[in-house]
């Protein structure tokens, strides 16, 4: 039974999650594009010399947050940069893609990228537990942060704590590469055969949480990933 659940999480659910992720995002964007446009501009003044550049700057550097909540800004910037590297680090696992030296046993960032997003997310959660921010938060905000924390912690375990074994990595990049290759090739191979090691259950948990993250993504505020720039364009005209 446990083996069957593990297989479902590691293979079919991954396809389902990716499908929901892609279709959900496309549906959200399509719905927006199908909605009528607001009849008049919503920009603020003074208008910057280049609205495009200003919107880009405000989207990626968040000067408003830096000005009004500097500590939060530090964690936000760290989180977003680390998240980008996390994505690249997972790409690096795919055979044929080498962002790290091919013979390196380490993931991109040697585990510190995962640690950065984990600490930042803990900060986001703690920050939300006091004062006015607590009053304006809803249950979904906490659950989403908890999901991220668990996702990152299991990822940390897989990518970093894994290397603390006296014999080095139990499940290495090559094994993860084989697993990803099997997913990309739709071989439906049993991941347990590709990923040896006693902490396989942590990998399954990590993939389960990642699946949930992908499934929830299009229906949550994480969609700001795609909408932050167009919204800043609205503000800057």
């Amino acid at each position: 039974m446990a083996g069957w659940i593990g297989y479902f999480i590691m293979v079919p659910m991954v396809y389902i999650a990716v499908a929901v992720f892609v279709i959900g995002i496309l549906a959200r964007v399509a719905r927006l594009l199908a909605s009528p446009k607001h009849p008049f501009p919503l920009r603020l003044y003074p208008v910057p010399s280049s609205a495009r550049l200003c919107a880009l700057k405000e989207t990626f550097l968040m000067p408003q947050v830096r000005a009004h909540a500097p500590l939060f800004w530090v964690f936000l910037i760290l989180f977003h940069i680390a998240f980008l590297f996390l994505f690249l680090g997972h790409l690096d696992l795919i055979p044929g893609i080498h962002l790290m030296p091919p013979d390196s046993v380490h993931m991109l960032g040697h585990g510190f990228i995962g640690l950065t997003v984990t600490l930042a997310t803990f900060y986001f959660l703690l920050r939300r537990m006091r004062g006015t921010l607590r009053e304006i938060s809803v249950l979904g905000d906490y659950l989403l942060l908890l999901l991220l924390i668990l996702l990152f912690l299991t990822g940390d375990t897989v990518s970093w704590a894994n290397s603390w074994n006296p014999d080095g990595f139990v499940i290495g990049k090559v094994e993860f590469g084989d697993y990803l290759q099997s997913l990309l090739g739709f071989t439906f191979a049993n991941p347990r055969d590709l990923l040896p090691g006693s902490h396989y259950i942590v990998v399954v948990l990590h993939v389960l949480l990642a699946n949930l993250f992908l499934i929830l993504f299009p229906f949550t505020k994480i969609m700001h990933t795609f909408f932050a720039l167009p919204m800043n364009r609205l503000r800057r005209g």
Partner: peptide, 14 residues
């Protein structure tokens, strides 16, 4: 409309 949906959907309650 399009803009209102963005404003209603995207707030991170930061």
């Amino acid at each position: 409309n399009r803009e209102m949906r963005l404003y209603l959907d995207t707030c991170a309650r930061c």
